[in-house]
Write a protein that binds this DNA or RNA. Sequence first.
DNA 1: CCCCCTTCTTAACATACATCAATGCACAGC
DNA 2: GCTGTGCATTGATGTATGTTAAGAAGGGGG
Lengths: 196, 196
Amino acid sequence: MPSPFQSYLTEKSGLKLEEFELLTPSVKTMAVAKGKILLKPGEVCQHSFFVEKGLLRSYTIDEGGKEHIIQFATEEWFISDRSSAYFNEASEFYIEAIEDSEVVLINHDFMVKAGGLNTSFREYNERLLQNHIRHLQKRINLLLGATAEKRYLDFIQLYPDLLLRVPQWMIASYLGITPESLSRVRKELARKNFRN
Amino acid sequence: MPSPFQSYLTEKSGLKLEEFELLTPSVKTMAVAKGKILLKPGEVCQHSFFVEKGLLRSYTIDEGGKEHIIQFATEEWFISDRSSAYFNEASEFYIEAIEDSEVVLINHDFMVKAGGLNTSFREYNERLLQNHIRHLQKRINLLLGATAEKRYLDFIQLYPDLLLRVPQWMIASYLGITPESLSRVRKELARKNFRN
DNA sequence: CCCCCTTCTTAACATACATCAATGCACAGC
DNA sequence: GCTGTGCATTGATGTATGTTAAGAAGGGGG
């Protein structure tokens, strides 16, 4: 029976079942309990994590001790410190399970071999990178120009499912505001929607 | 005599001179006057631009009419709307010459052919993408956590050359603050450096 | 069942940065 | 040599968001 990861990959990247077989030695599935930390600053990131079930986040802690959430990852998402993995540098962030989760560990070996097997896998990988860039770009734009309220509305649009699974203080952290401010924003939105 | 672009590429990407010859039909060099706009929102970005001489910038204009600078590009930098070019979508930003410049236009054809000729070119291209991601990531982190002053200091570190070539209101726009605020930040820094 | 711990909310106050308006300054065009 | 135009600076004031502190509403573990 194919794992969710295998199904996902064969569908999205055009990797064949037989090809996937060859890669299984480079792939490990792992159960991680809520709160478990998979990567710490200072370590070199050795894996991409594919979430089969559950929810992870990546975040930094600044000199003032404040957390800033970089990314959430739910089912069928990848999460990793790409820069650390690719350039073999110390990572600057944490990756942590927000819920009890099942994740697939993908190492460098896997990427090289899969790229060697199959052109369409390489293309898929490039598409992932390009998509990541698009996403980061958009976020920068919001941070440069939009108020907390707009950023929150955008978040709701983009990740309606996360709204229900992630505590609000984490959403606030993702948006770059305090939980108190988010609370006020939500109150204000509720007021507007009621009156109109 | 090799163009700056050719020298750069052969050095960085391992593309051979003979291979480059095959690609010349897909490459055009172009002089652009200060103020000239090379890409507008709504258009699909057809080129990457490589700056041989001069200085370009990319920026968006938000609903309030305010500019937000995404990127500067001086000699030996690439600038483009990757997402637009790759996904064939309408671009959301402008690309404009800040100085009289010489740029190389690189189209999709070039990328495909170069990737076909040479594995190391593909690797080089991936390195560029990964590097871009690292850069965007860092900027997000600064926007999330750092004050205007810290962001400005970081900018100075990273782009000391740009400091002298770019008007301050553009630096302010890149940092996500107003020119007035930047002026005050600079004043404050000057005061500190004098006293200590 | 109770207690503790985390999350969320609310309020009063603080602050970084924006906005608006005026001035000075340099440089280009005539 | 003037004069206009764009950029930088400065001051007065406004506003969004942060900070601190407190209390209320759940939820899990003993």
